[in-house]
C-alpha cells in the first residue's frame, strides 16, 4: 500500500477585492471564494488530475497546496506533517521536496541568466555541492529531460517553447522533489510538442517515483496521465474517482457535459446529453452570481429534467461529496 504524500482537508482560499473608490475607509469588500472547501489526498507515485473550466480555482489549489499562497482555512498535510502554518524558513526547506511547474514557460527562467547558471542555482539551493558534482548533476538532468548539452550556454530567449519547458522541468527536478504540482504544463506548447512533454512527465514518474498534482483543462491529457481525476466547479470538487470511471461513467451532470463536449466537438451531430442544455444560461459562469444550494443547479440539465426540485436550490442542503463505491465520490442529489 503506497504511502499518502499529500492530504488536503477542507481547504478554503478566499480572495478579497476592494469595492469602489472609498472602500479603504468604508471597509466594504467583495469576497471571492476561489477554493471553497476542498478535500483530497495524493499517494506516492500517483497522479491526481484536477480539471475544470478557467476560473474554477484549480491553479489556486496548486499554489495553496505548496503554500505559495496562505489558505484561508483548512489543513494541508505533507508526509503526515501539518504544513498549514509552517514558517517561511520551514517552508523553504520543504521546497526541496515539493515543486511546481508553472504554466508560463518563462516563469522559472531569469531572462538574463544562462541555462547553465539557472540549473546550477537550482542544484545548489538546498545542498552544498562541489563544482564537479554540479556539472555531473547538470549532465544527468539534461539526459533525464532529453535536452542537448549545447543549449547550456544559451539564454532563455534563444530557446524554443519545448526546450524552455524541458529546462523548467530540469530545474524542478534538480532539487530532488517527491511531489510536483504541474499547472497546465502543456497548454502553452504546440500540439506536436505537447506529446513530447506528456511522455516525458510519464517517464520521469516511473523512473523517479514522483507524485503529480496535474492541473489542466485538456481533458484527454488529464485522462491519459492521471490515476485519479477530480472535477472542480466554482471552487468545489463535484466529482472524484479513477480516471477511467470519471471519463466513461461520470455520475455528476457537469462531468458528463465536460467530457461529452470533447467528443461532440468532433462528431457531426451533437449528443443528446448537451442538446437540452442549449439555452442561453450556458455562458454564465462566475463567482458573483448568487446561488443557493447546489452551485451547478442554474446550468444543470438534470435539475431541469427533474422539474426543478427544491432540494437542489435549498441553501441548507448543498450536496456534499459522498462515496458511491470504489472510491468514486460525487456531490449531486441526482447522480446519473
Amino acid at each position: 500500500m503506497p504511502k499518502t504524500i499529500l492530504e488536503v482537508i477542507d481547504l478554503k482560499k478566499h480572495f478579497f477585492h476592494r469595492k469602489g473608490l472609498f472602500s479603504a475607509f468604508s471597509g466594504e469588500e467583495r469576497r471571492i471564494p476561489a477554493v471553497d472547501g476542498v478535500s483530497f489526498y495524493l499517494k506516492e507515485n500517483e497522479t491526481v488530475g484536477l480539471v475544470g473550466e478557467s476560473g474554477c480555482g484549480k491553479t489556486t489549489i496548486g499554489r495553496t497546496v505548496l503554500r505559495l499562497a496562505a489558505p484561508t482555512s483548512g489543513r494541508i498535510l505533507f508526509d503526515d506533517k501539518d504544513i498549514t502554518t509552517a514558517t517561511t524558513e520551514q517552508l523553504r526547506k520543504l521546497r526541496g521536496q515539493m515543486q511546481m511547474i508553472f504554466q508560463d514557460l518563462d516563469a522559472a527562467l531569469n531572462p538574463k541568466m544562462r541555462i547553465r547558471d539557472i540549473l546550477r542555482e537550482a542544484i545548489t539551493v538546498h545542498h552544498k555541492v562541489s563544482d564537479e558534482e554540479v556539472s555531473r548533476r547538470i549532465g544527468e538532468l539534461l539526459e533525464q529531460v532529453n535536452l542537448k548539452k549545447g543549449k547550456l550556454s544559451n539564454f532563455p530567449h534563444e530557446l524554443s517553447g519545448g526546450e524552455k519547458r524541458r529546462v523548467g522541468i530540469a530545474r524542478v527536478l534538480s532539487v530532488g522533489p517527491r511531489l510536483i504540482v504541474a499547472d497546465e504544463p502543456t497548454s502553452a506548447l504546440d500540439v506536436s510538442i505537447q506529446a513530447q512533454v506528456v511522455n516525458l512527465l510519464r517517464d520521469l514518474q516511473s523512473q523517479l517515483g514522483l507524485s503529480y498534482l496535474f492541473i489542466s483543462h485538456d481533458l484527454r491529457v488529464v485522462e491519459l496521465i492521471s490515476h485519479k481525476v477530480a472535477v472542480m466547479y466554482l471552487g468545489k470538487i463535484v466529482e472524484m474517482g479513477l480516471s477511467g470511471r470519471i471519463a466513461h461513467a461520470p455520475k455528476h451532470p457537469y462531468t458528463h457535459i465536460l467530457w461529452s463536449s470533447l467528443v461532440e466537438k468532433q462528431s457531426k451531430e451533437s449528443s443528446s446529453a448537451t442538446r437540452n442544455t442549449q439555452s442561453g444560461i450556458w455562458g454564465v459562469f462566475d463567482f458573483e452570481r448568487p446561488y443557493s444550494g447546489c452551485r451547478f443547479a442554474p446550468r444543470c440539465p438534470v435539475y431541469e429534467s427533474q422539474g426543478r426540485p427544491t432540494v437542489c436550490t435549498d441553501p441548507a442542503s448543498e450536496p456534499q461529496l459522498r462515496d458511491i463505491g470504489d472510491g468514486h465520490q460525487v456531490a449531486c442529489h441526482f447522480p446519473l
Binding site: 473550466e53 457535459i257 465536460l258 470533447l262 466537438k265 451533437s270 455562458g283 459562469f285
Partner: peptide, 11 residues
C-alpha cells in the same frame, strides 16, 4: 474559451 463553451461555439 472553456471546453463546454468551445463546443457550443462549434455547434
Amino acid at each position: 474559451l472553456d471546453a463546454t463553451i468551445q463546443s457550443k461555439i462549434v455547434d
